[in-house]
Amino acid sequence: MFKKILLAIDGSKHSERATEKAIELAKLQDSASIEMLYVVAGNKSKSDVLHYGDSDTASLKRKRLLADYKEMIEAENISTDTTVLHGKDGTAEAIIAHANEHDYDVLVLGSRGLNTMQTMVLGSVSHKVVKYVKAPVLMVK
């Protein structure tokens, strides 16, 4: 049923819950795999480089951040790999493009929980993703 699972991660608490749900989904099926997707949008590059000093260090921090989720998944004997997308105009657009270019059975993502004002200016990632991704989407609150 859900064999190829795409898991979008932003490193927040919501990602952790989304990962748990993705693992539950994967366990329903023999030899299911989870691909973790992390998007470095333009402004994320700016603040990461400012706070970590340079691009190499920022990449290392991201790798470490993703390693926690990888561990969670591998602890359940589920195969997993990681995709990091750079320089994209908007997180939602990058997730949508990646999900639709490849063949996934389901996309799992956490909801950021922005307030009304933030949603108005930034736009809701999950809303756009649910609307435009062709595969079924599991949004974890």
């Binding site: 470095v40 333009g42 590059s45 700016k46 990461d48 480089v49 400012l50 000093g53 340079d54 691009s55 920022a58 990449s59 990091v84 750079h86 320089g87």
Partner: peptide
């Protein structure tokens, strides 16, 4: 050089 590092990161190149 700060901007160069940011572009390094955005394009994942050196």
């Amino acid at each position: 050089l700060l901007t160069a590092s940011i572009v390094d990161d955005m394009t994942d190149t050196d």
